[in-house]
Design a protein around this nucleic acid. Sequence first.
DNA 1: CCTAAAAGTTAGCCTCGGCTAAACCATGAG
DNA 2: CTCATGGTTTAGCCGAGGCTAACTTTTAGG
Lengths: 137, 137
Amino acid sequence: MANVHQRIRSDHATEIAEDYVEAIADIITRNGQCRANDLVRLFDVTHATVNNTVARLVRDGFVTTEPYQPLDLTSTGKTLARKCRERHEVVRAFLLALGVSDATAIADSEGIEHHVSQETLIAMKQVLDTRSLPDGV
Amino acid sequence: MANVHQRIRSDHATEIAEDYVEAIADIITRNGQCRANDLVRLFDVTHATVNNTVARLVRDGFVTTEPYQPLDLTSTGKTLARKCRERHEVVRAFLLALGVSDATAIADSEGIEHHVSQETLIAMKQVLDTRSLPDGV
DNA sequence: CCTAAAAGTTAGCCTCGGCTAAACCATGAG
DNA sequence: CTCATGGTTTAGCCGAGGCTAACTTTTAGG
Ligand SMILES: [Mn+2]
Ligand SMILES: [Mn+2]
Ligand SMILES: [Mn+2]
Ligand SMILES: [Mn+2]
């Protein structure tokens, strides 16, 4: 990835796929299944948008669908979901440790997670492991 | 901003404008002027893309142009640039304080900056002000 | 002063990720 | 059994932000 800005663009290209597979996995865990309508409510977009996005996820091998059936993740999709959920959780916990409110940690982590490199993720984990930040500062 | 994901989408909508005005201000500071070609090199996109993007910035009141002349920022553009440069710098310094490499701090901050709320920014500043993180952890 | 190279512009294309509107299917209440 | 309702799909639109290719203007060297 020669250029910094190229990486940002590539982060953004995968961002929606990451959020969707993570959401689908979470909803399946919570409800036993995930319907398109669950994603409509979660992301606050229209049916048509979810349909288009899911079609791309199917095309890219993350999701399988049958007409009028709940969504399923492929094993690739499950792997990506697991990775994203863990990364997201680290970022959220790190922001909390930084001392911001719950609502802010939830909101900011949703965007930040996609731009955190492996190196930064490890640095965040280290802070969480050794000491909670608010006392440490 | 009712929904978390709506905020992410709105962050992304302003992100390119933010990066461009920040870059234009920086290049003017460094070189005395900013030409489209400087942006081509910086962002690693084509002339045509810079042209399209700059046209949107003009439309939105951040930039003024004359044919074949260097770009200029409006006062709105300058204000936005100042705000973005400061926020960007806080995020970069914070990542450095977290102990990551220079290259990673530069790369990650470029994406993260656009998703950092005022509350999180203040929390980061506080860490930077009171103590450098690497010893503190 | 001419002309080649560099810078800038324009036209036309693409995908992504939004939207509305309309059709389609499945199902539970009556 | 029918049918209203709600979930789903499809068609068709849009703007952002990329691209290539062709053209024009400016600038610099010889
Ligand atoms: Mn996210
Ligand atoms: Mn920036
Ligand atoms: Mn940026
Ligand atoms: Mn982003």
